[in-house]
Design a protein around this nucleic acid. Structure first.
Length: 293
DNA sequence: CGGGACTCCTGCCAGC
DNA sequence: TGCTGGCAGGAGTCCC
């Protein structure tokens, strides 16, 4: 489900429930997701106050105030393919850490439950369990294994055509694969790579190194920024059963030009081509071979 | 070293 | 109707 726009949408949905609030009780309903939870995870979060929520690439960062015994720390959350949060208001039947049958947090794939001091319950469910959580000191965040070597934020000031060109230069792999690599640009996934390449008029099969020209890299960087910004405004894309924290659905999927549109006429005015599907490094790529060169 | 195949896990859907 | 194989928004690990 989640690429950068969906993760940003989820982050915004969590802000009212988390920012400025304290964790009263954290329940792990299994010892691991994709990876084991770090040692003392629930205990270390209990009583901590959330200062702010940030996003980096496809990660949600929950920043925690320092305490008498702990420095400022960051709860790192990655949603994998199927991770989702639901928020249940303090008027519900919950008591912190209690799970009567039918209460939020008791479904089969409800793996993590955050009970806040105000009685709000935040449930993380992830049926494929490709997501994960970690808790690290804020001072070592950049050097952590999650972020070391990660490419620039595509919506940040540090992202531009020349920066992208530098990261593509010499790469002997298709541009599609290079853009999925989080070391090139952070936060893109299969959907938005397909959409950005379409907007830039570039074939996904083209070698990455050949995009490292001023014209192509500038066009591609602009396409990436543009498609991500539009998707965020739309609340992300909803495929299968992804929903916002409040249950609302994103609607950017209605704006896909190529993703999951195999066989459709190319939407570029005057093109007349057809959207094709090919497989690259084991994953579907959608593109128009007439106008994407 | 860079690049590509494989892997984790569950659910869903098309096709037989 | 019921089973099966393929496929799904990610990315770490291993092997060449």
């Amino acid at each position: 489900m989640p690429e950068l726009p969906e993760v940003e949408t989820v982050r915004r949905g969590l802000v009212p429930a988390l920012e400025g609030r304290r964790f009263a009780h954290v329940t792990l309903r299994r010892p691991d997701l994709r990876f084991p939870f770090p040692k003392g995870f629930a205990r270390r979060l209990t009583g901590r106050r959330v200062s702010r929520l940030e996003r980096r690439a496809k990660y949600i960062l929950v920043c925690l105030d320092a305490t008498a015994t702990a420095p400022e720390e960051v709860l790192i959350m990655h949603l994998g393919m199927s991770g989702r949060f639901t928020i249940h208001g303090p008027d519900g039947p919950m008591a912190p850490g209690h799970f009567h049958h039918g209460m939020p947090g008791t479904e089969r794939h409800d793996h993590v439950v955050f009970d806040m001091e105000d009685g709000t319950r935040i449930v993380y469910a992830d049926h494929r369990r490709f997501g994960f959580m970690d808790l690290v000191p804020e001072a070592s965040l950049d050097a952590s294994r999650h972020f070391a070597g990660m490419g620039p934020e595509p919506l940040g000031n540090a992202f531009s055509g020349p920066v992208l060109a530098e990261r593509l230069a010499g790469r002997r792999t298709p541009i599609k694969a290079a853009l999925l690599d989080q070391r090139t640009v952070a936060g893109l996934g299969n959907i938005y790579v397909c959409e950005a390449l379409f907007r830039a008029g570039l074939s996904p099969r083209r070698m990455a190194a050949t995009v490292a020209t001023p014209l192509r890299s500038t066009r591609l960087a602009a396409a990436i920024r543009c498609v991500l910004e539009e998707a965020i405004v739309a609340g992300g894309s909803t495929l299968r059963d992804y929903a916002h924290t409040d249950g609302a659905l994103g609607y950017f999927q209605h704006s896909f030009a190529v993703y999951d549109r195999e066989g459709n006429a190319c939407s570029k005015p005057g093109c007349g081509g057809t959207v094709n599907r090919i497989v690259q490094s084991g994953r579907s790529t959608f593109f128009c071979s007439s106008c994407q060169r």
